[in-house]
């Protein structure tokens, strides 16, 4: 074999090898990545005027939330509905969650009256654009430890006053709610950059439809929400409404 023949062999091979080598210059990953972020919870509107004409002021509030899951599916008219009606929905109809991007499977208890949002847990997941979230409420059980006392065996506990005219009602509630609230608007791009999700509990929305006049009020005493009745039903509807829960992505380092 002479030099020319060898060149004939080598030339196309070298050219092809160069082509293959150049192909190695691209991204050496499959895209996306594992991410984690902290989840905090705090109160929104501890003091508000309800649609039932009451001025409500919450003085103590705690909630056990979780698991929480973040999905890539958009909430169906989520923000639009919130804008016009002020409420979201417990049964979101044709909402399609799509792929799950992150979650926390444990439950965390938050003192909503703390001076700053309370850390719930660290969520783990994969990168992507989050558009909605699922949040579960369950009655407090032994797994919550000492924090269970603050919940008084409920999923959440509230204590405060409601005033309409010259009537003031001191109330407390610890409903045992067992529900998965789907399709809550929660928008963020999870790409590994620092940030956290803050779950805001809109106490005003929780209690917005409660007619405190239906409670068996005893003067100078705190009245508990009965297991049935308008107040409990309205609180339940408030709790399972997506409008009571605000997921906000806060970029930057955690507090």
């Amino acid at each position: 074999m002479n030099l020319r023949d060898r060149s004939l062999v080598a030339a196309p091979l070298v050219a092809a090898l160069a082509l293959v080598s150049s192909a190695h210059c691209g991204d050496d990953s499959t895209g996306r990545q594992r991410v984690s972020f902290e989840v905090y919870a705090g109160a929104i509107r501890a003091e508000s005027d309800s649609s039932m004409g009451w001025h409500v002021r919450v003085e103590q509030a705690a909630v056990a939330i979780g698991p929480i899951r973040w999905y890539e599916g958009p909430p169906l008219f989520g923000e639009l509905r919130r804008m016009f009606t002020g409420v979201a929905w417990a049964h979101p109809g044709h909402y399609v969650p799509g792929g799950a991007l992150a979650d926390i499977t444990a439950r965390g208890v938050a003192d909503l009256m703390a001076t700053a949002p309370v850390r719930i847990a660290t969520a783990t997941g994969v990168s992507g654009a989050v558009q909605s979230a699922h949040l579960e409420l369950h009655p407090s059980e032994g797994d919550l430890g000492p924090a269970r006392a603050a919940l008084r065996n409920g999923s959440l506990s509230l204590r405060g006053t409601a005033t309409r005219g010259d009537v003031t009602v001191r109330f407390e509630a610890a409903p045992r709610i067992d529900v998965n609230i789907e399709g809550i608007p929660a928008r963020a791009t999870l790409d590994g950059t620092p940030g956290r999700f803050e779950v805001g509990v809109d106490l005003g929305a929780l209690l917005d439809r409660v007619d405190f006049s239906t409670l068996p009020v005893q003067p100078a005493e705190t009245v508990a929400f009965p297991e049935t009745g308008q107040a409990s039903n309205a609180l339940y509807r408030g709790a399972v409404s997506g409008a009571s829960w605000r997921f906000t992505w806060v970029a930057g380092a955690n507090p």
């Binding site: 899951r69 799950a100 979650d103 499977t105 994969v126 579960e136």
Partner: peptide
Amino acid sequence: GPGGSVVP
């Protein structure tokens, strides 16, 4: 039962 992670 419920409660498990749904993340890949």
